[in-house]
């Protein structure tokens, strides 16, 4: 421990990443929460999960996205939420890459339910990789300033 606080710019950057990624996950969860039927079909069309896991994933995944997004924004258990969001992005990237590699046409279902083409799949892979880079940067931050955890003393205040 150096005893030096992270700079204001650094703390600001981490806060912006937290708000952005949290908001992104909340936004992405809304249409999935509204229509489990449609989301289950999206998961089916990825052709990765066995049949008996499709419905449970369609039920649980949007809830986890929503809660992780909210926790990240308010900064309560923010480390755990950041970990979940990073892991989710990794899983999405693997699923999209796998389907691109085997030439399957599918609808990503990320933010809406609409048919997407291969070009769109490449675009969303690049987009998810950018989000992943942001999530990793956030996860590596030494302190989540201006979060509830920070207020409660669960995040370092005086030392970095």
């Amino acid at each position: 421990m150096s005893g030096r606080r992270p700079s204001l710019i650094h703390r600001g950057l981490v806060l912006i990443l937290r708000l952005f990624l949290g908001g992104l996950f909340i936004y992405a969860s809304v249409h999935k929460l509204q229509d489990p039927v449609a989301f289950s079909k999206i998961i089916y069309n990825y052709k990765i999960l066995p049949g008996f896991l499709i419905n449970m994933s369609a039920i649980v995944l949007p809830g986890v996205e929503l809660v992780a997004g909210i926790m990240l924004i308010i900064g309560f258990m923010s480390r755990g939420a950041a970990l979940i969001i990073t892991a989710s992005l990794l899983v999405f990237i693997c699923a999209i890459s796998y389907n691109l590699a085997r030439g399957l046409e599918f609808d990503c279902g990320c933010f809406s339910f609409s048919r997407s083409t291969k070009g769109a799949a490449v675009d969303l892979l690049i987009r998810d990789l950018i989000f992943l880079a942001m999530a990793l940067r956030m996860l590596c931050a030494r302190g989540f300033a201006w979060s509830l955890d920070w207020l409660f003393g669960l995040e370092p205040k005086q030392h970095s």
């Binding site: 929460l33 489990p36 039920i59 649980v60 995944l61 949007p62 809830g63 986890v64 996205e65 929503l66 809660v67 992780a68 926790m71 258990m77 923010s78 480390r79 755990g80 939420a81 950041a82 970990l83 979940i84 892991a87």
Partner: peptide, 19 residues
């Protein structure tokens, strides 16, 4: 972090089931 992630996962799953 891992403990918190498990808690977030559990609350999120519950939220999904309730929804």
């Amino acid at each position: 972090s891992v403990i918190e992630a498990a808690v977030v996962l559990a609350i999120g799953s519950l939220a999904g089931v309730v929804n």
